[in-house]
């Protein structure tokens, strides 16, 4: 692409970002996860606002790098990824598509009932919490008493 490229529209950029997988849950995109908060042009610089899920989440750095790589591959030359902590990230920002994909992947999506609605493996509703924390800061460990399989639950925050 030449320097005189036509600026991609913000809608196009959102589409490109929707193809960037979350490094921990690769079946959902960083857009599904709700951590890309805004995309805008400031002159000829593209600014992407990213909100971390958990303050210590080690994936945050990787996500910024993946976003940068994806946009550079599309020919974006001037890019500024800014971390925005307020308003704080909430699981309400998870897209419906993301929730569905997550469950198919074997992770129960967040639920306002403060626990999973059903087992992502067998759909059973007789569940027990094993631990408040799971394989990443955003997840807890639960087990289905029906199929006896443990599973991750994406915590509601």
């Amino acid at each position: 692409m030449t320097d005189a490229m036509v600026k991609p529209t913000e809608a196009e950029i959102w589409q490109w970002l929707d193809a960037v997988p979350d490094p921990e849950i690769p079946v959902i995109s960083v857009v599904d996860l709700g951590i890309v908060r805004d995309v805008k042009w400031e002159g000829d610089t593209l600014v992407v606002f990213v909100t971390p899920t958990y303050s210590g989440c080690p994936a945050t750095g990787i996500i910024s790098m993946d976003i940068e790589t994806a946009l550079r591959d599309r020919g974006i030359k001037k890019l500024d990824i800014r971390v925005k902590i307020a308003p704080a990230w909430t699981t309400d920002w998870l897209s419906d598509k993301g929730r569905t994909e997550m469950e198919k992947f074997g992770i129960a999506p967040p639920s306002p009932a403060a626990g999973p609605e059903r087992c992502p493996h067998c759909g059973g509703a007789d569940l027990e919490k094993l631990s408040q924390f799971g394989s990443t800061p955003c997840k807890a460990q639960w087990r289905c008493k029906g199929c006896l399989e443990p599973f991750d639950y994406f915590k509601c925050i």
Partner: peptide, 11 residues
Amino acid sequence: NTALDLIGQTQ
């Protein structure tokens, strides 16, 4: 995970 949250807040 608790330690990780606390270190994140520290940053």
